[in-house]
Design a protein around this nucleic acid. Sequence first.
RNA 1: GUGAGUAUAGCUCAACCGGUCAGAGCGCCAGGUUGUGGCCCUGGAGGUUGCGGGUUCGAGUCCCGCUACUCACCCCA
Length: 428
Amino acid sequence: MKKILKNVRGTKDILPDESYKWQYVEQRIRKIFEVYNYREIRTPIFEETELFARGIGELTDIVSKEMYTFFDKGGTSLTLKPEMTASVMRAYIQYEINKQVPLFKVYYISPMFRQERPQAGRLRQFHQVGAEAIGSQNPEVDAEIIALVLHIIESFNIENYTLKLNTVGCQNCRPAYKEVLKEYLRKFYDLLSEDSKNRLDRNPLRVLDSKDERDKTVIENAPLIYEYLCDDCEVHFNELKKILDTIGIKYELEPHLVRGLDYYTKTAFEVISPELGSQDAIAGGGRYDLLSKELGGPDVPGVGFALGVERMMLILEKNGYKFGEIPKPFVYVAYLGQDSQKFAFNIVFSLRKKMIPCEVELLNRSLKSQMKEADRQGAKFVIIVGEDELKNDKCTVRDMKSGEQFDVKLNQILEFITSKYAQEASTD
RNA sequence: GUGAGUAUAGCUCAACCGGUCAGAGCGCCAGGUUGUGGCCCUGGAGGUUGCGGGUUCGAGUCCCGCUACUCACCCCA
């Protein structure tokens, strides 16, 4: 017996009963991006490993233990993209977009890959929608990005969320703060968790968002970066808050919010939802003014966000959200006998050329089975072509909802259905 | 990578302390309607109880291993 293969761990098949929901969600999201004047960018699903290693940071969890890395036949190390920002920046630098347009506003909807242990809201292949605005250091752009992600979330009637906002400083002020923080943490070294002890020197900021109870008591009184921000960062942060206030966006300051990617500077934010399980971040993002240079590009600032599509879908399913209508044929053409088949197919293909969704019996079943099939598929009308009809040069049209039946001349059937279809479209 | 829980028909789940326990509902197929769906009735197909060992007279049920799934830690979307 042959082995039955299955989808690999942490991946999901999206079958027809689900895929229409995805199409609906993606379509709505694309519309919103258009409204904010962002254009789609599509980059390859894999890149040279070095891009992520340099862009995201060797010490991050993503790079150090979660990447799907492999060698191609030429011996080049490639990696399935674990996030999108590095790829977008790579393209930005590669095509010297800074010389073409002052501000590059793009969005993406794409699968991402991270080799983590799957759990609720966490997959190895998952989908993110996101946007990047490269070329401006103005806090207005940070605000636009935040407004955009919240607009998307709210457009799906998700009200129960919290925007957490923080600043992580920049190359001028962060180092000094790091030293102060390290010094503070060393005083309580013995009280810290093992993980935090290890991080203390390598990445002290990460200790701040530890959820370990032992760490929490220490963190509670730790010095905050707010007191150590340089003028530039402080002004930027204050401006951003002011703009958010002005456009009515509510946020919670979360001084311990530290994002897991090294390239963030200044603004960092996260949108969390209590509807999700332990993986409660539906979206996250921030500013990355050092990334371009880190990748050998020009000194260009950027800001962006990413939203987890599966996580948002979890909330929507939980809320009983209506994902539009599942596509259904308008007409099902049933027939009986060889002679009728020609007419049936003729009608179906003519209707299809008129872009009317329809189906025809393809399994040569009994009329009863065909009616059942039409019902199952949700067809509004069934056209029946049989011996009796052909003799009289007509066909029978059954309205599946009312049960009414009409005799229609064969040469008038297209017209008949077309007008029914037009009526249907106008009442929607 | 660590921990816990789960694994019976396509789906959702039953089967008391191991002893007609391999079942139900839904779905699927057929018939009741010589050419007509939905409701109803009748019947049918479909399972080596995740895989491999062990204990026992006897294992879906107990033990061990493996695998997968789920949730949590870690981290993040």
